[in-house]
Computed example of a mutant assay.
Amino acid sequence: MIRIDPDAFLRLVRGETKGPVACLGRFGLGLGSVGYRAAVAVRNAAFDRGLKTIYRASVPVISVGNVTLGGTGKTPMVEWLARWYRERGVRVCIISRGYGQDGAINDEGLVLEENLPDVPHLQDPDRVKLAHVAVEELETELIILDDGFQHRRLARDLDLVLLDALDPFGLGRLFPRGLLREPVSSIRRGHAVILSRADLVSDDRRREIRAEVRRRAGAVPLLEARHRPRDLVDGDGEPSALDGLSGARVAAFCGIGNPEGFRRTLEGLCGEVVGFRGFPDHHPYTADDVDSLGRWADGLGVNLVLTTQKDLVKLRTSTLGDARLRALRIELEILESAEPLETLLATLLPGSHGGSKD
């Protein structure tokens, strides 16, 4: 199997890698995008025209997804939704494919399990089967489909599309030449668009993004959100306050889809980030990784290393070398008013009579 360095791939498609070989590589990736676009178009048309079967669960389904590769904040959005419905007494189940799970629940599932102990989370590539299990065996009243925008076999009553404000449109190109999973115009299938990490870009940039969404998706509800730092957690999941980070010198690392978003959050929270290391998304940390990170932290002379909760649930340690290791736990916060989204969610409460866009 050929292994691709994700950082090298990103530098190539962003145009940061120069020279004739890089230009030839981008040309080849562009040709690959042509075939990819055709395959996506054929698949979507088959669902749109009823040529592929769509299974409808006996309870409402909400999909949280995106149109780009990489992290857009789907897990915090899923957690926000699950809490909203649990606060109203609804039995919720989260289902997802489980990327990188290797036979066990993956890192995102572990995070949701830690933060939502009263909400079951099922993982399997066959999400239609999972929906049946959720309803028949767990007596679920509402299903949240994590990373489900492209999984069209399971009908959904609400499609929530997340765009990351740091790169909302995947470099404007389809994979493999860019980071789009499908054309930006696909967001018109959504019932609402949430612009995550909106606090990390300028007001002018937010207006530009909003204008492009309106051009592509019309009058669909468009909300802005941020990833609000909540607290720190150690390797045992024990929380502690954020007090003291404002003047702290820290090192940080992560293996997530959007490391830049994590880095920027830390830069606004800590005194100084003296070192930052990135790993591929869903990176399976080894003992050698832990030793290497410990030597790295000791060499930087810091007594606190920060990572994401998604990384720490796999490491399950509270120290790296002589430094303390903590995860920054974040939660989604809707900026301004969440009313447009809550109005949609309320239509799916038991006893309501919500409709479907499908």
Rank of each mutant, 00 (worst) to 15 (best):
V64N: 09
L160I: 15
D164P: 14
E141Y: 05
D48V: 06
F253V: 07
E114M: 13
G261H: 06
V128D: 08
D298F: 07
P76M: 01
I194F: 09
E208C: 07
Q101K: 13
P6T: 09
P229F: 04
R230L: 15
D311Y: 02
G25H: 02
G218T: 12
I105K: 08
R214K: 14
L112T: 06
R3F: 01
L160T: 06
R263D: 06
D204F: 00
L166H: 01
L345D: 03
T286K: 12
I95A: 02
S337Q: 13
E224P: 01
Y99E: 02
E331F: 02
R188C: 08
I62D: 01
P239R: 13
T317A: 12
L160M: 10
I62Y: 00
Y36K: 08
L345M: 04
R181L: 12
G275S: 13
H283W: 13
L166Q: 11
V302A: 01
E16M: 06
L232A: 08
I95S: 05
L335F: 04
E208S: 13
P176T: 08
E79Y: 01
D288Q: 10
V133F: 01
E139F: 07
L293F: 02
T75R: 03
T68L: 03
G190A: 15
R188T: 12
A327D: 05
G301T: 14
R173Y: 05
L138M: 12
R228H: 13
G148R: 10
T343S: 13
C23W: 15
G98N: 07
T307P: 09
R277C: 02
S186V: 02
L195P: 07
E267T: 04
L344H: 08
L242T: 11
E16G: 00
A131R: 06
V305Q: 07
